[in-house]
Computed example of a mutant assay.
Amino acid sequence: MQAIRSRDTTPERMIRRLVHAQGLRYRVAARPLPGLRRTADMVFRPAKIAVFIDGCYWHGCPEHYVPPKTNPGYWSDKVARNIARDRDTDQRLTEAGWTVLRFWEHEPSAECAAQISAEVKQRRNSARKKGD
């Protein structure tokens, strides 16, 4: 388990690079809510957007998850707990007024970055309109 990267994976770095190139700034591996012991891969605090790039195996991708052959009881339970924690995180952030964006590691980085950028810009524009 020590060799498994929890942050700075290749898909994360690619998406971050593309989002950064569009002029957007964010926090990396940060807690969106101070009292919640969970970190998002990218956090846009003023816009209240939390981005998660989920690994297909660890988060149970419906397309690519393959149950393990070695110690299946433990690993299947672990993945099920991860999925339940993801849903709980989504719910808590949504209740706190955050937008949660989740992507699978196999999704094209350019499409993910475009969706993130569009959402951030939309939230920023709607916040400006409220302030007018």
Score class of each variant (00 low, 15 high):
V43Q: 00
A113V: 01
E12T: 07
G97Q: 08
R124L: 15
R31L: 01
T9P: 06
G131R: 15
H20K: 07
N82T: 01
R45K: 08
L24S: 02
S76Q: 15
W75K: 05
N82I: 01
P68S: 12
A21N: 06
I15A: 15
A30E: 14
S76T: 14
V79H: 00
S126T: 14
E119T: 15
K129A: 14
W98Y: 11
R16A: 14
S117Y: 00
L33K: 06
R37Y: 07
N82F: 04
Q122S: 12
R31E: 04
R45E: 10
R87K: 14
K121M: 09
A113I: 02
I4D: 01
R17H: 15
Y57C: 05
F44L: 05
P11L: 07
R85G: 01
A50I: 13
E12L: 07
H59I: 07
D77L: 10
R128N: 12
I116G: 07
P72W: 07
R45F: 13
Q22V: 00
A113Y: 03
I15G: 05
V51M: 11
V43S: 00
D54Q: 13
D8F: 04
A113R: 02
M42L: 15
P67E: 13
Y65A: 03
P68W: 00
D88N: 12
R27P: 02
I53A: 06
V66K: 14
Q22T: 05
P11A: 07
A114S: 13
V100L: 06
F52Y: 14
A84D: 12
M42T: 07
P62Y: 09
R31M: 09
R7I: 06
I49L: 15
L101P: 10
I53M: 10
V100H: 08
V51Q: 10
Q2G: 15
C61T: 04
